[in-house]
Design a binder for these strands. Structure first.
Lengths: 237, 237
DNA sequence: AGCCTTATGTCAACACCATTGACGCAAGAT
DNA sequence: ATCTTGCGTCAATGGTGTTGACATAAGGCT
């Protein structure tokens, strides 16, 4: 049960004691700091020790607010999910609305890759997610789908988006060493494609840079076109 | 450097020295052992020290075969990909062939959920991955797509499949404590759907069990229908 | 057959990590 | 003014990946 809001250690702070360096700790502040650390110095910069150093407190003070690092990362993930749908209202064009939803999720993930990778594993089934489901299903229902079918299609859609967003985020979350390794391996692989073993790949050798790029947009458009094709003719349209 | 097949440390073994306990090491054997460790004792059981213990050798011997643990992890990922595509030959129906590819990948991930989660977000750029790309692009080319477009569409398709497979695997890979937490959150959420805040969800309350299910198949069918719709009329068809 | 190179298994050490239990200070209640 | 206890601090434990020096035997070469 690591992660539920009520489970956070000492959820209501009764006594607030400043750290040695004078700052007042809080769960919010720690999440802020974690996001900042990840954003500024890469995903591997997030450790309890560094967190303590950045916060100006002993590393173990973090455990007064979160059970463990997984708990902390879930809190970070929750913050990201809440932020992504913030202020979103569907427009009249249902396909465009779904597209915007997808891009919002993707951008939010890309903004916090490391936490996003962790978030994508755990479907939260919490407030923010239900709001998103209600919104998304609403878009499809207004497009003319039966409610139950709208739910199924929405789930297929959003899981696809989440999967791709996670893949994108994972690529960004790679440590510099891994990233370099990937790129070196790529260039070498491009050159070593032989016409004998891989005739097709050899024939489109100059297009192979696509291997290193995100396929989020093409996949999104395929998905949207499939949904559009299945939309029933609306009585009011 | 991590990654390409030719980059593996001492790719061709010239001298084979048994370990203290008598086993003959090999990259294959190490990958086998890693998969077994992860499968039996969870993803966190994979460490160089445990690997050494399980193999009956000094932990550092692993570094004679892989540059680092990331390198090893990529090899594990490539093994999973290779297993899934093993013995696959595309049939005459290109849509059915793509479907089979997707289901094979999904099954392979589900067979090694924890390893899949560890590895799924990495592009291995190793032998097996290239074989899969060659195969998949070939299917689309024979369906009538231009090679470059076939590559783009294949990547969008396979990334979607990988993303969903990873989500499925992640659900299977949750630790018991985490799984219980998720299920508790789910049931609580089902009950708390109120008609006021979520009128749509309340209306389809009996369909909400879909939230807990995989959306792999619906998403796959949407994707396939989109591809089928975009296929050019084949001269020979 | 016997030497020599060197691949490869072993050992010890380093620097980092998360997590925990004891300790003590001071905030806030009584 | 005293007492309780939340919470920041300290020290310690046992884990991690990775590296460099070392030893030993495998297998090519003469």
């Amino acid at each position: 049960m690591a992660g539920a809001a009520g489970d956070r250690v000492s959820h209501v702070r009764r006594r607030r004691r400043p750290t040695r360096s004078g700052t007042l700790l809080s769960a919010e502040l720690i999440v802020d700091c974690a996001l900042r650390l990840i954003g500024e110095h890469g995903p591997e910069a997030l450790s309890v020790r560094r967190l303590g150093a950045a916060l100006g407190c002993d590393p173990s003070a973090v455990y007064r607010y979160f059970h463990n690092t997984d708990d902390l990362l879930l809190a970070v993930a929750d913050r990201i999910i809440g932020d992504s749908m913030d202020g979103f209202v569907p427009g009249p064009d249902w396909v465009a609305s779904l597209r915007e939803m997808a891009l919002r999720v993707r951008d939010s993930y890309r903004a916090h890759p490391r936490a996003a990778v962790l978030a994508s594993y755990r479907v939260t089934r919490r407030e923010n997610e239900f709001r998103a489901v209600e919104t998304g299903v609403g878009i499809l229902v207004r497009a003319g789908f039966e409610p139950a079918r709208a739910l199924r299609l929405y789930l297929a859609f959003i899981d696809t988006v989440l999967g791709h967003a996670a893949l994108d985020a994972a690529a960004l979350a790679l440590s510099p060493a891994q990233r370099e390794g990937d790129s070196q391996a790529s260039t070498r692989a491009y050159q070593s494609v032989s016409a004998e073993t891989y005739p097709l790949l050899a024939a489109i050798r100059e297009d192979l840079y696509a291997l290193a790029e995100s396929s989020f947009e093409p996949a999104l458009e395929l998905m949207l076109s499939a949904l559009a094709a299945q939309a029933p003719a609306r009585p009011g349209a």
